[in-house]
Structures are given as structure tokens and as C-alpha cells.
Amino acid sequence: MSEAVLVSTTVNGDVVEFACPTDEVLLDSLRDRVGLTGVKEGCGTGDCGACSITLDGQLVCSCLVLGVEADGRDITTVEGLTEDGELHPLQQKFIDHAALQCGVCTPGFLVAAKALLDRNPNPTETEIRYALAGNLCRCTGYDKIVRAVQASAKELNKARR
């Protein structure tokens, strides 16, 4: 049995402490210890993106990060996208454009799409498709997801002006 360590981290703006075995991945820590089940496991090997989070602002798969590595870091999950109860424009556009069917990949897509728009507010369709290539969706054929991201970019840019 791996030794447990105490991890102190910031999750969606709140300071969170948990103890986890050293070989536990952050995905499991977030789901089972912090209670954020919006972070999904689709593969556990970094191939589907359903567990996407940002770690110190960097988009990562939480299944490929150890819980212990999160010590002293700043984490954002899908649960942290909403501000003061207001949906983030990406969240609203995903609903408006029917960009989700089963919805299990949606949290990962939202976190990845936000990371993209933070970095590149005006992505082309091709840039969107490549930036989201690490997020698998089996329901939509991606069509409405890409359209929702395009619409979000437009709205965010309008708000910035």
C-alpha cells in the first residue's frame, strides 16, 4: 500500500486539503475526495479528455497527474466555470446549439474550449478542431460542438470590445 500524503491545493478558488495515496491520480482525488464528479473518467489513459482540468492555467488530463503533484497548485474544473451562478458563455452556447447529447464528454470539452479561447480568442474552424482533438465525443460527430465554440468566441469577443 502506498503511503498517504497530505495535499493542499486550490480548487475553483477554494483552498482544499485532502490526503491521498501517492500513486492516486488527481482525477480520483477530485472525484472521490473533493467530490467533484463533473470530472469524468472515460479512459484513464489520457486519450479521451473527459477528465480535462486546468492546472496552474495549463490544460491537462487529470488522469495523467498524480494527486500529490497538485500540492500548492491551482486547479479549475468544469464546476468552476460558472461565475456567481451565471453560466459561462461556452456553457450557454453548448445548450443553445445542442452541442451535447449524452453529455458525459461535455465537462472536458468545456474546459478544453475555455483554455483554447483564453489563449486564442479568434480561432479558425481548423484551429478549434485540432485544439479539441484530445476530447472524444461519440454522440455528436463534433458538428454542433464546433459551432457552439465558434458562437462563444464571437460572443466573448463582442463583450471584450
Binding site: 480535462s52 495549463q58 488530463c61 482533438a133
Partner: peptide
């Protein structure tokens, strides 16, 4: 190598 997520690491 991998996706944007993988590139982060």
C-alpha cells in the same frame, strides 16, 4: 505528441 492536454505535461 498527443493532444493539447498531453502537451501541457
Amino acid at each position: 505528441i498527443g493532444s493539447d492536454q498531453i502537451q501541457g505535461r
